[in-house]
Design a protein around this nucleic acid. Structure first.
Length: 245
DNA sequence: GATAATGTTAGCAT
DNA sequence: AATGCTAACATTAT
């Protein structure tokens, strides 16, 4: 579930619930469920990896973490309790293994939409400026910063770095201006390929680096290593990807 | 059946 | 006080 493009799919899947009134709300999440009852959903939105169910004066923020899932008019066969269940007069929404929070007031005060890699308002220049402030940060960590690239996750990270031929342990400040722009451009571009391929059920088939053993470009082994302060899996080719240090 | 994985944060230690 | 690291959480495919 977790990366930005998957959240777009979730948003589209539940878009039809806008306008519906919550009859009952329950679940394992530690929120005030009473608050939701008899409230009408005004909008379904997203920011990065956050799925947002908006009401007049507050918003439910759902984060799927690593294992989250949602079911529409369906319940888990395992009979496990959802983090959140929203009941409507003719339908039901179940969110499992999710972090659920209520955000008070106008949702625009909580999010800068131009930080979301999937949003029409995405502002590449803003990302450039933020990267300038962290020259010593490794590229593999920078791409995962939700403050800079909201929605980018580990798969996107690996595929983007492979595509633009940058070694994950390169320092942000060592990239040329052109290379920095290329990186940012591709972060967004691949995210939309991810969306397209996930919808078509061919996401994994199109991976070039992530979980791969052999580089498709040069036939040499793909290195698997936990990199950066975030210590997330990186898959890269030392022959094709340049270390800027 | 053990292991690792698309992620984040609370809480503890320094 | 601010910063940094680890443990914790929870599910599923391999």
């Amino acid at each position: 579930m977790p990366e930005g493009p998957s959240i777009i799919i979730a948003k589209e899947d539940i878009a039809g619930f806008a306008g519906k009134k919550v009859i009952d709300a329950s679940g394992l999440a530690k929120i005030d469920f009473d608050r939701l009852e008899n409230k009408v959903i005004t909008d379904i939105r997203s920011w990065g990896k956050h799925l947002l169910i908006c009401f007049d004066d507050f918003t439910i923020r759902i984060h799927f973490m690593l294992f989250g899932s949602y079911l529409i008019n369906e319940r888990k066969a395992t009979n496990t309790n959802p983090s959140l269940r929203l009941t409507f007069d003719d339908s039901e929404l179940n969110f499992h293994t999710s972090s659920v929070k209520l955000l008070e007031g106008d949702i625009d005060t909580h999010y800068a939409w131009d930080e979301d890699i999937m949003n029409d308002a995405w502002d590449a220049e803003k990302a450039v400026e933020k990267l300038k402030k962290v020259p010593d940060k490794l590229v593999c960590d920078a791409l995962l910063e939700q403050d800079i690239f909201a929605g980018v996750g580990n798969i996107i990270k690996n595929e983007v770095l492979y595509r633009v031929r940058i070694h994950p342990e390169s320092k942000v400040g060592k990239l040329s201006k052109a290379k920095t722009h290329e990186l940012i451009e591709e972060a967004r571009n691949y995210s939309f390929d991810f969306l397209k391929w996930k919808k078509a059920g061919v996401l994994k088939k199109n991976w070039l680096a992530h979980t791969k053993k052999i580089c498709k470009r040069c036939d040499l082994p793909i290195i698997k290593e936990y990199t950066g302060v975030k210590k997330r899996r990186s898959f890269y080719c030392t022959n094709c990807q340049v270390l800027h240090s």
